[in-house]
Each structure stands twice: as structure tokens, then as C-alpha cells.
């Protein structure tokens, strides 16, 4: 099949970007979206032009590198997958495909479709961990039984891949779903209880400080999340935060 691509090209954060149109031919429906981009880039290189920069790594939907806003949706038209798992059979011959980077002031564009998501690392550094030192003497892993449903909800929240689709799709560029997923993962486990109050407060404060928008509960984030992280996590974060700030003596 043949497609018309409208790709966002931007030299760097300091330059102005624009949509550039490319035509790609003989695309197989079994190709992944990124393989189609590879093909485009090979043709650009042959012509001596700068290929389109985009983040990608594992190409199996788990590293969270890929980040394209395709035809108005993060990771494209299909649900529950990342861009690298999107296949060309989801498009029609002759279709025009818009490809843009994540857009949020907290995710500045580095080049073309590559954005800087280091703000996510900073949110985790603010408390998204359990303070336990490496030691060969931690208590036995089975010493504290954890109800299966708690372990399962912790796991579901922990499957977040940090791709940033939630921020990208949110009309307020809010990072609530990302932050809530980590808070919820850890607070669902007995090991995470000890620091739960300080964790939620410092992570939320960090998120605010970095300039992410607020949540207006539109729910786009959860719909577009490639891992299906649920809004329940945001509710849990809200509860944890309320509890922590009321309890706090500071």
C-alpha cells in the first residue's frame, strides 16, 4: 500500500518546527509502524537528507521509548499497544497519516519526534521507591504473606512503562496517571507502607514543581494508556494524599 505521511520535523528545541509531507510506497500490511518509518528514513538517507529522528528501542512494547502521536492519538489508532506494536494493517491504502511528537511543556522537543521525558525520572527520584539497602539479610521473601488481590493490583499499577502517552494525550498535560501508578504500586504492598505518607507528598509536590498540569478527570490518559493503567490509581493517590496531608504534623 501507499501512504501520505505528514511528519513533524524540528531541528532542535530552539528551532521552529513544521509538518513536512512524505510519500511512502509498497508498504506491507505486516510491517510494524516503525519499520515503515525505517523505510522512509532509508529513502531519505539515499537522497542525502536527514532521516526523521524518533525514539525507539525494544520494539516489543515494553521499554516505553517510542512516542509518536499518530493521527491524533498517542501510539496510533489501536488500544493497548505502543507505536512499535502498531502494524500497518491498521491503515488503509492511500491514507494520510499525521505523525507528531508528544506535546507538553514538560516534554520539550529535542529533535523531530524525540522529546525529553526526564521529568518522569525526577518524579520517581522524589520518592518512587522503597528505602531498602542491598543486603543478603533481608527477611525471607515469604515472611509477609500478601493477599493475592493486593499483589495483583500492585502489579497492574507497576506495569506502567513510562512512555508518557498519558501526559501527551491529556489536555492539561498532567502526569497524574504516571505518578499515581507508582504510588499505588508501592502503597498496595506492606513493604511500601512505611514511607507511604512522605512518598505521596513528595512525589506530588515534585510533579507540581516540574510544571505538569492538573487532572480534570477526563480520563483520556487511561483510555490511551498502552498498558491499561486504570483511573483507580489516581483515586488511590488522591486518598493517599488526603490521608497523608491530614495526618502530617509538618
Amino acid at each position: 500500500m501507499n501512504l501520505k505521511l505528514k511528519v513533524w520535523r524540528q531541528e532542535s528545541s530552539k528551532h521552529k518546527g513544521k509538518i513536512v509531507e512524505y510519500k511512502v510506497h509498497d508498504i506491507s500490511p505486516d510491517m510494524s509502524f516503525l519499520e515503515m518509518m525505517d523505510q522512509l528514513n532509508q529513502s531519505l538517507i539515499e537522497k542525502g537528507q536527514d532521516p526523521v529522528a524518533f525514539d525507539h528501542d525494544c520494539r516489543e512494547g515494553i521499554c516505553g521509548s517510542c512516542s509518536m502521536y499518530i493521527n491524533g492519538q498517542p501510539h496510533g489508532p489501536e488500544n493497548m499497544i505502543t507505536t512499535c506494536q502498531l502494524h500497518m494493517r491498521s491503515f488503509n491504502d492511500g491514507e494520510t497519516v499525521y505523525i507528531e511528537p508528544w506535546r507538553a511543556s514538560t516534554f520539550p522537543i529535542i529533535k523531530d519526534l524525540v522529546v525529553d521525558r526526564s521529568a518522569f525520572d525526577k518524579i520517581i527520584q522524589a520518592g518512587g521507591y522503597i528505602s531498602v539497602n542491598t543486603s543478603g539479610n533481608s527477611q525471607d521473601a515469604n515472611a509477609i504473606p500478601i493477599p493475592k488481590e493486593n499483589a495483583d493490583s500492585a502489579f497492574d499499577a507497576a506495569t506502567c512503562i513510562g512512555c508518557g502517552a498519558c501526559v501527551a494525550t491529556c489536555k492539561n498535560s498532567s502526569a497524574m496517571l504516571f505518578t499515581a501508578a507508582k504510588i499505588s504500586h508501592l502503597s498496595n504492598l506492606p513493604q511500601g507502607q512505611v514511607e507511604s505518607s512522605s512518598r505521596v507528598i513528595s512525589m506530588v509536590n515534585k510533579m507540581d514543581e516540574l510544571g505538569f498540569g492538573n487532572c480534570t478527570n477526563t480520563g483520556d490518559c487511561a483510555v490511551q494508556c498502552p498498558k491499561g493503567i486504570s483511573l483507580d490509581n489516581i483515586a488511590k493517590m488522591n486518598r493517599e494524599y488526603l490521608k497523608a496531608s491530614l495526618k502530617s504534623e509538618k
Partner: peptide, 26 residues
Amino acid sequence: LLYIRNKNASNTKYIFDKKKSSISSR
């Protein structure tokens, strides 16, 4: 206050955008 904060956080718009949430929420 929230409106201002949210606008600052999302200062650039997509050329092509398709939201899936309800109009009332947006």
C-alpha cells in the same frame, strides 16, 4: 488558577488531535 496552570503545562497544540474523552469533561 487551575486553568492557568493547565494552559501553561500544555502550551502547544497538536496539528491533528482526536480525544476520546467526553465533551462535557473537556
